[in-house]
Amino acid sequence: MLEARLPAASILKKIVESIKDLVSQANFDCSESGISFQAMDESNIALSSFLLRADGFDPYRCDRKLSLGIRFATLSKILKCAGNDDVVVIRYADDTDILSLVFEAPDNNRISEFDIKLLDISSEYLSIPEQEPECKVKMSSAEFSRICRDLITIGSSVVIDATKSGVKFSSTGDDGSGSILIKQSASVDGDGKAAPQTTVEMSEPVSLELSLKYLNNFTKAAPLSEYVVMNMTNDSPLMLQFDVSDIGYIRYFLAPQIKD
């Protein structure tokens, strides 16, 4: 059985919104350590995954490994019935095909319960090689979203060039070209509060060409986190990570494009 109580529905809402256009259905894998998910899009170009650690829930109970097949369109519709501040209780009783979601309003005067029919999905887990990236960029997720949104008006792909001084995003299309350079920074705003900063750690300069359609899809996770981390290695897939407060993360992997 599974019983997991999440303090704010907004977290689950944002996660589902940031995956549902990439993957239509997939298993949520539940174990003692938490709830995780991994699935590729239909064209095998992008992989989405997330982890929500057990300690992000209070309480969290899962006494054996479970794979719960979820259709994201259904889950998204049902989560729209939850208020952002509602507590969500996720429940699954063994040997059933139903997942229950209970939304408790903060004043406790409204409790709604929805049941979702689970699907039987055979999932194929890919093993992702654990390797230290040649370059790791951390930047404002809002800035990253803006760059992807701006450059898709120029072309369908972006070349990301990361060097010690910063990261350059360039795009070329039939009608012209554009580029945006984000310098490495550690700024402090007027209130003395640390503003979102860009950091670049690298062993090698990296250049990757990537589809802007997919990157724009990934930026749907930006509301989850102030920062995005890009792990890049030449001729290897990009890994983007958005932290989900301090309880987990959502990651996307995107295969690069190559010149013929």
Partner: peptide, 14 residues
Amino acid sequence: QKTQQSLLSFFKSP
């Protein structure tokens, strides 16, 4: 011309 690679050429099924 650019070719979009598949993730399957990088990540293997166990």
